[in-house]
Simulated assay, not measured.
Amino acid sequence: MNHNDGRGLRVFLTGASSGIGMALARAYAGQGATLGLVARRASELTALRDSLPEPQRHRIYVLDVTDHAALQAAADDFIAALDGADVVIANAGISQGTLTEFREDLAAFERIMAVNVTATFATFSPFVARMKSLPEAQRRRCRLVGIGSVAGIRGLPGAEAYSASKAAVISYCESLRVELRAAGIKVVTIAPGYIDTPMTRVNTYRMPFLMPPDQFATRALQTIAEGRSYRVIPWQMGVVAKVLRMAPNWLYDAVFARAPHKPRNL
């Protein structure tokens, strides 16, 4: 199995029915990978599968990633059917504006954390023991991929839950990466900037370096194949992220205090 061309790869992907997930699914399928596609919406998931090359090779799982029993069952089915997985991508994610001053935003905060953070753990968990049991050469082909965000690098006003969730994903994947280093299993964190998806199209403000999802997928697949520990895509947002990370709090606060907010109550 060659990560560089995707042929023979077994890829389990959540949040597959739209946006980044759909672009990743199309890119991997185009390279000859066999996919396990997870999403909540049956019609969109079925349409995606049917649009892929050799659709009969791919398996679909209609579920909410916060239903951990259903997610475990899907992972077990994929492992049994394909004799394991090479790449597991915890891509499912949601976003909306949240403000702590509004008590009614608590439910949205909890939902965002459940989908973006806890479900990342629940997506990876069924695969780790199986990957660790493989011979060394096979373990070194394995990838666990978490999808962070530039929003996880510094907290953005009006996006308290989303920023917190993506910061948690980045930190969680770093912890897991170090934990699995001795086993030779690569944990890859990808932090998208602004990608042209349904999630970002609700934004009413300018989005610098906006990237089409197919271009994002091409770069993401390369990053995953290389087993890189962390990458911001596009690279221009990576430069911005480094500057933001180094900026002192007083400067960051002054610049971003009046930044536009993501809409609430979506």
Rank of each mutant, 00 (worst) to 15 (best):
R7A: 11
L9F: 04
R10M: 07
R10L: 04
R10G: 00
F12R: 00
L13P: 07
L13Q: 04
T14G: 05
G15T: 12
G15R: 03
G15I: 04
S17T: 05
I20S: 08
G21I: 00
M22R: 13
L24R: 00
L24M: 08
A25M: 00
A27Y: 00
Y28I: 04
Y28W: 15
Y28M: 08
A29V: 06
Q31I: 06
A33C: 09
T34A: 06
L35C: 07
L35Y: 05
L35G: 12
G36T: 10
L37W: 06
V38T: 12
V38M: 11
V38P: 10
A39W: 01
A39Q: 00
A39V: 02
A39N: 02
R40M: 15
R41T: 03
R41D: 05
A42R: 12
S43E: 15
E44C: 00
A47Y: 05
R49H: 09
D50S: 13
S51W: 06
E54T: 12
P55R: 03
P55Y: 07
P55E: 06
P55V: 06
R57T: 01
R57A: 08
R57Y: 00
Y61R: 00
V62I: 15
V62W: 01
L63Q: 12
L63I: 10
L63K: 03
D64Y: 03
D64Q: 09
D64I: 08
T66F: 09
T66I: 11
H68R: 15
A69M: 09
A70I: 09
A70K: 08
A70G: 14
A70P: 11
L71V: 08
A73T: 05
A75K: 00
A75C: 04
F78Q: 01
I79F: 14
A80H: 11
A80L: 02
A81P: 01
A81D: 10
L82Y: 15
D83S: 10
G84L: 06
G84W: 07
D86L: 04
D86Q: 10
V87E: 07
V88M: 06
V88L: 05
I89N: 01
A90K: 09
A90D: 12
N91D: 12
N91I: 00
N91E: 07
A92E: 10
A92I: 05
A92V: 05
G93W: 12
I94L: 04
I94F: 00
Q96C: 09
G97V: 03
L99N: 14
E101N: 09
E101Q: 09
F102A: 15
R103H: 10
R103T: 14
E104W: 02
D105R: 02
L106S: 12
L106Y: 12
L106R: 10
E110V: 01
R111D: 14
I112Y: 02
M113K: 02
A114E: 13
N116D: 15
N116E: 13
N116I: 11
T118W: 03
A119V: 11
F121S: 11
F121N: 12
F121G: 02
F121P: 01
T123L: 03
F124S: 08
P126D: 14
P126C: 13
P126G: 14
F127C: 10
F127M: 06
A129Q: 11
A129K: 07
R130I: 09
R130G: 09
